[in-house]
């Protein structure tokens, strides 16, 4: 399937899916969305790219290896458990800080978000690894 139209569409759609996936991921705490769905969307962008070109091109576009995405994801999930220890709360307690940023208003950041980001990266890495492997065969 080497169609120029599809290739153009895939190349243009990739940044859009990535931004959209980040958006879905970010709103996940209180609204439908979250790390898992975000990760699926991000990998969908790359899978479409790999379908339009081939997996080697898509891997090049990804820059880091999918394995490193998984490692980073697991590390983020692990790191998100640490702040609760320093705060003296039981393991895995959600710790929040709220930052006030000019123009944007209040931004609430917390360890659940960090954990979810870990999920996002892990899902992204795992799905991309599986699909690329199957596509290469």
């Amino acid at each position: 399937m080497k169609s120029y139209i599809v290739q153009l569409a895939a190349a243009r759609l990739l940044p859009v899916t990535l931004i959209l996936s980040m958006l879905v991921f970010y709103r996940g705490h209180n609204d439908p969305g979250g790390g898992f769905i975000g990760g699926l969307m991000a990998s969908a962008g790359f899978i479409f790219y790999a379908m339009a070109f081939d997996t080697r091109e898509a891997e090049k576009k990804l820059r880091v290896s999918p394995l490193m995405l998984i490692v980073a994801g697991l590390s983020f999930a692990f790191i998100s458990t640490l702040p609760s220890l320093f705060a003296g709360n039981p393991f895995f307690t959600g710790e929040w800080v709220s930052l006030s940023i000019p123009l944007l208003g209040k931004l609430k950041l917390g360890t659940p978000l960090l954990f979810d980001f870990g999920v996002y990266l892990t899902v992204w890495g795992v799905i991309v690894t599986i699909i690329f492997n199957v596509m290469e065969e």
Partner: peptide
């Protein structure tokens, strides 16, 4: 009091290290 969670966390950390040094 993190002790009861450690039997889960240590293998997780090991996996992270193993994958990170995969090469």
């Amino acid at each position: 009091m993190i002790l009861p969670a450690l039997p889960i966390l240590i293998p997780l950390l090991t996996i992270i290290f193993l994958l990170f040094n995969f090469q």
